[in-house]
Design a binder for these strands. Structure first.
Lengths: 333, 333
DNA sequence: CTTTAGCACTCACAATATCAGAGTGCCAAG
DNA sequence: CTTGGCACTCTGATATTGTGAGTGCTAAAG
């Protein structure tokens, strides 16, 4: 029923339970309140709306929202100027800060909390490796992968290596393996280990193992959140205890990541309404996500989290285009 | 008057305005409520206590707190086991994660929010510099300073340099300047620029300038906060709007940094009560800080922030020893 | 001069009552 | 199927009252 649409829209607009009279006026269908009431009764039986008490209007249930976003929602495309603005602010922040900016932008534009999962690529290509001796048996390993990212980590070695040794090893590795995928490098080295075994190989192994670990832990998923404080402006978030738990969940990251993970393989926009996500912490909240792709590979998810009563019609396109913009910005153009 | 002490202690304990009867009982001085009332009247005239309304007990004013912490407070030293626990958790987290751990620890132990300013050393000693070509006119500069820290940044150069050039420059810089302080290096290079000017020098200049910038921005002070959510458990933080502003201040960082800055040169524990910090955002809050020193140089501040009504007697020693432990952990042993 | 008991007074807070308004459900008529 | 009418329900605002904790002041006692 398109009445549900009007009801949800109205409720999203001003957060008040909406009664039959207002609905009659808003629907534009020239129906009397009484008719509306009958319909409402039906909708209530279907579990799409409830009334907080006998004599209040109706509010949508989670199922109501679900139906609304799945079928009824009319997404108004963003005005061009807005898109340009997004694009511009994201561009001007540079690649390194792009993730943070995207998160902030999302939160600013939607007045919700912005989430951006760090990109994680399936294939990690070694571009360059470098060793720097720090002190006795502490070696700094610098790794450039995927054309952009720089990773470094200190490793402790069994014995001291002098600078020349390190240099030789680095040269060897670079000559041999630059441009290859990290996993395959690891295997190769392990294999050649079995033939000749000397200290150099041990070093290389540690190094590659470390590289693997670095990449893998930075891959352990992590995300950036911005604008949590926006959430405090919604009356539905007034319950301090609930809010605390929510913020703690943001901090712990585990649950949020799990939700984001669920949507990484979705085709496009994904929406979790209320407890659909499976976590009661997000009880009164909805999450709107979109995966973003770098060089045609999906590498992460971004989105927003906010009260169930959010302006889906506006939020969805924002999340959508932000994902696209971020993706193309991160791609090697 | 030691009555003020009892009053503040009592108020800190259970957050209720304390009346003459309870105070008479707690003070242990065998005075009748009536006498207490007279004294209270005096204290009120001195501006040390107020009553929220005519017929409630008294609560300390900021000035009352001030006097309390300055003169009256009896700091009970931490139990040895607690110190050990702190030391142990901090040790086991390793140097890189030490800052984060310290912050978390502070918040966990005190049930407040923990703050740790990133260490900043006055003298930054260049240990090693390295250039890696990334692509046409993008060069990755890697900087090792102060024996521990690795910084890297990508710079864009005017013209392409081939790897040999870069290598030569790096070698030169390392041979010439390793072990020197960064600022002096910069000056030296600028000076020698005036004599011979060629592309290499331009590169060097950019690099050193960048180095300076990197160090300076990482120096721009930044801090790590943990356990903000703890603050939501205090009833005095119930005002959502105030809380929002506070959290936003945490996010913006500017105000907090300014407060921390103020206390970096204090001899030891420093306490800001309520608006003493000069920011109304921290209205109902107190900040307890202690500078921490690495290799006998003060490099940062850590502390906690929480409601004015906090258990100073317990919080102070915690902040104190945490500062000491962190300092010694970060020092080259 | 300090301490104490006594007493009237004040005020917040909780419990209770009252009322208006919004909205419903249902029935009977169009 | 839709509509008007009507009784009914329930919330939320506002006013009323009572209770208890705690005060300030005065006058007596140490």
């Amino acid at each position: 029923m398109s009445l549900l649409k009007t009801l949800v829209e109205r409720y999203i607009q001003d957060g008040q339970p909406v009664g039959s009279r207002t609905l009659a006026r808003d629907s534009g269908m020239n129906l009397s309140p009484a008719t509306i009431r009958n319909v409402m009764s039906d909708l209530e039986d279907l579990g799409l709306v409830t009334s907080p008490h006998t004599s209040a209007g109706r509010i949508p249930t989670p199922q109501g929202y679900r139906l609304f976003v799945d079928r009824l929602l009319s997404v108004k495309p963003l005005r061009h100027s807005v898109i340009e603005r997004l694009k511009h602010s994201l561009d001007s922040s540079g690649q390194e800060r792009a993730i943070d900016s995207a998160s902030s932008l999302l939160s600013e534009v939607t007045h919700l909390a912005g989430l951006v999962m760090l990109p994680r690529r399936e294939t990690v290509i070694l571009q360059h490796i470098e060793f720097l001796p720090l002190s006795a048996n502490r070696v700094l390993v610098i790794l450039i992968v995927n054309d952009q990212e720089v990773q470094n980590r200190i490793i402790h070695t069994d014995r001291d290596f002098d600078p020349e040794d390190l240099h030789r090893v680095a040269n060897y590795l670079n000559a041999e393996f630059a441009g290859r995928e990290l996993g395959s490098i690891r295997q190769r080295i392990l294999r050649s280990m079995q033939q000749t075994r000397d200290d150099m190989h041990a070093l290389m192994q540690t190094a590659v193992e470390m590289a693997d670990q670095v990449v893998r832990t930075s891959q352990t998923h992590d995300y950036v959140i911005a604008g949590e404080t926006n959430l405090m402006n919604y009356e539905e978030m007034a319950d301090l205890e609930k809010l605390r738990q929510l913020f703690e969940a943001f901090h712990t990251k585990r649950d949020v990541l799990h939700v984001l993970d669920q949507s990484i393989h979705a085709a496009g926009i994904q929406i979790f309404i209320g407890e659909e996500s499976g976590y009661s912490v997000f009880g009164e909240c909805s999450v709107v996500t979109a995966p973003y792709r770098v060089d045609d590979e999906v590498v992460g998810v971004l989105g927003v989290i906010g009260p169930t009563r959010m302006a889906y019609g506006r939020v969805i396109p924002v999340v959508d285009v932000t994902a696209k913009i971020l993706g193309s910005l991160l791609s090697s153009e």
